[in-house]
Design a protein around this nucleic acid. Structure first.
Lengths: 244, 244
DNA sequence: ATGTCAATTTGTGTATGCAAAATACTGGTA
DNA sequence: TACCAGTATTTTGCATACACAAATTGACAT
């Protein structure tokens, strides 16, 4: 049951391409932290690890560069992008704003059908909370937000928001597991649903932003607990004013 | 002097990598419309065109796939992503929302140094408008918005917003050239600057959104004028007031 | 002893070759 | 004439080989 790379629905489209498999594997390892930030990724070494040649490894790395998960270091190969706590928080904030934006547009544009589907999803999540079924709730959560994306009737925005969200999926699951975050999450969903029902997009957006930032705060607590305060990395680079 | 690939200013940063040159060239051709949406991109054909082998072409294409400019069609190669007018408008709306988000955060977070730099930039743009120097204003515009991105002090958000913006750069230039759009653009900047000066992030965001949507509307006029009105699609939802 | 220059080494960037897959074409049959 | 099967061609995907650039190390000179 524990397949190495649990392929979900959209993985059907990859056609079994080796470069895609490598890309997905590296994505997972980076997201899960198995590959430490800043560590070098040598092509030949990765090729050996995956039993492939350098070519698909190279293609996978190039894709990861565009995705932002790894960084090119001049001509000295690529390194895992530094996902400092600050950067993770930046991403969560971006995701929060994006979701808020989506739910605002969705509130004004969603069809009755979409609204009823969203309500249906939300209702179904109650049982998951009471069963403390994190996996089920995580899956629901994804569908819930994707439903909102679609309801924006802006496919590009939906794709962008989902891309950011997927890059944070690893962290989101960890933060969902702690304390009563699931119950709180659903309560926040409830408030958002109410604003949507009232057609108040701005309120829905504000609540969605708070909802996402709460998740981020829960994650930060988790990170601080787990990695202590003064980690080896993460205070230098991104928030530099890089003066004008 | 007539090098095969006339590299412009930003090409200095590519380090002379063939795959990057090809990627940039293809990006330009796709953005400019020289490569029609939906047209197939055969690797060998592109390799011949660029006087290279298939390898760098492949890498360029893979990067473009992640960028969203081209789409993979199973195992039948890649095609230029369909940039229908609707999708362009979706992207403009997304960009507008992203910029609004950025300017709101920037208003609350920018340092005095960043604020003064922004003011300085804005002042300098007056001369460009009076000279009707589209190229200079386009360059200024880019710097203006990038300055706002940085002022969010959220590097990830800045990168995302800039990525979306860069994908629209080709269209932005075309719409800048028509009518008195430049003058209007600067007036809208003026209003945004005022809101920033007053520390009113929400107003700045609203004005920024309107500013970007005005640009989108100008572009739509341009598209409708150029490609005729009765296009296959594109009358449904884009200019909807979407509340607020 | 230290700094500089050169050579080696390591690793990326590019080219070419080969195999598999998909499409198109052709021939045959109903 | 229409449809199906088989083959051939085209094109992608992967592997391997080669070239070039940068870093490191060692030697030599100051």
């Amino acid at each position: 049951m524990t397949r190495l790379f649990e392929v979900t629905a959209e993985a059907e489209a990859d056609g079994g391409l080796l470069s895609d498999r490598i890309r997905n594997a590296l994505t997972d390892e980076i997201a899960s932290g198995a590959l430490a930030a800043g560590s070098a990724l040598e092509e030949q070494q990765l090729a050996d690890r995956f039993g492939a040649s350098r070519t698909p490894v190279r293609e996978a790395l190039r894709q990861l560069v565009v995705s932002g998960l790894v960084e090119v270091r001049g001509r000295r190969g690529v390194v895992v992008a530094r996902m400092t706590p600050e950067r993770i928080m930046d991403m969560f904030e971006t995701s929060a704003e994006a979701e808020a934006m989506c739910v605002r547009l969705a509130t004004y544009r969603m069809t009755p059908l979409e609204r009823s589907h969203l309500i249906e999803l939300h209702e179904a999540s109650r049982a998951m909370v009471e069963a403390s079924n994190v996996d089920a709730y995580d899956a629901f959560n994804r569908e819930f937000h994707e439903c909102i994306y679609r309801a924006t009737h802006n496919s590009f925005l939906a794709e962008q928001a989902q891309a950011v969200r997927s890059r944070l999926s690893g962290f989101r699951r960890t933060q969902l597991r702690q304390g009563d975050r699931i119950r709180r999450s659903r309560e926040e969903h409830e408030a958002i649903m109410q604003a949507i029902a009232e057609g108040d997009g701005d309120t829905a957006a504000r609540r969605m932003r708070a909802h996402m930032l709460n998740a981020a705060t829960a994650l930060r607590r988790y990170i601080d607990d787990r990695f202590g305060g003064a980690g080896s990395r993460g205070e230098a680079e991104d928030s530099a004013p890089d003066g004008v």
